[in-house]
């Protein structure tokens, strides 16, 4: 557990020292949202929902992509000697989930500021956005590890991750429709919600089980 914490601390420290990701993504979100505003003004609920999750997907990918791609081969070897792969992947998962949530907070603020708030239930929409960010961050953590092993750029990560994230994205889109005023059948919302959380747990378990195989070289 201590190892996990130390590794997370190291990632956080790196982030604080070279803040280019944070500011880069802020700029990315801001300019995208601004272009959207110029293109269509304040969108309606459906459009807002679709755009929000699409932008979220790209923002989270950009935030998570560097988590493994930044680790050089030599540094991976060093981690190999000082820690276990399980500690390493858990630290990365938690860190990426946190950074994705942070990115979502920023883009939510910008969305609400520039594109208006067609959301009826802001509180639960923000909560769902957090959950969505965590889901996307978790899936793309392992994809980032795979892409780094394949010695490819972020392009392969998008190719691998996009089809895999669709189930969760579909669930998120449908749950969030209820916050724009759509009424669902009794119990359907809870069912979708628990499926989403179940998928997250599945992704965590698979990442922890599979990462040790990736790491060996």
């Amino acid at each position: 557990m201590k190892g996990v914490f130390t590794l997370m601390q190291k990632d956080l420290l790196l982030e604080l020292r070279q803040q280019y990701t944070f500011w880069g993504i802020l700029l990315y979100v801001a300019s995208t949202v601004f272009v959207l505003y110029l293109a269509m003004g304040k969108p309606q609920a459906d459009v807002f929902n679709g755009l929000f999750w699409m932008i979220q997907l790209f923002v989270c990918i950009n935030a998570v992509a560097k988590s493994f791609l930044q680790e050089s081969k030599g540094r991976m070897l060093y981690y190999y000697f000082i820690g276990s792969p399980t500690q390493f992947i858990i630290a990365k998962l938690i860190y990426n989930a946190l950074i994705s949530v942070l990115m979502v907070v920023m883009s939510l603020a910008l969305f609400f500021f520039l594109l208006g708030t067609p959301v009826l239930n802001v509180g639960s929409f923000v909560g769902l956005a957090f959950l969505g960010a965590v889901s996307i961050g978790l899936v793309f953590t392992l994809m980032s590890a795979i892409a780094a092993k394949a010695q490819q750029n972020a392009a392969i990560m998008a190719i691998l991750g996009f089809p895999l994230i669709i189930p969760q994205l579909l669930l998120l889109l449908r749950i969030s429709r209820s916050m724009f005023g759509e009424v669902f059948r009794e119990g359907a919302l809870l069912q979708m919600f628990s499926l989403l959380v179940g998928l997250d747990v599945l992704v965590i378990v698979l990442s922890v089980v599979l990462f040790p195989f990736l790491w060996r070289e």
Partner: peptide, 20 residues
């Protein structure tokens, strides 16, 4: 490397494929 990385992805993909 292809075998190992491919196998990891394949296992991960299957568990997303089934719920999908």
């Amino acid at each position: 490397k292809r075998a190992r990385v491919g196998a990891v992805y394949n296992i991960f993909a299957y568990f997303i494929y089934i719920p999908l």
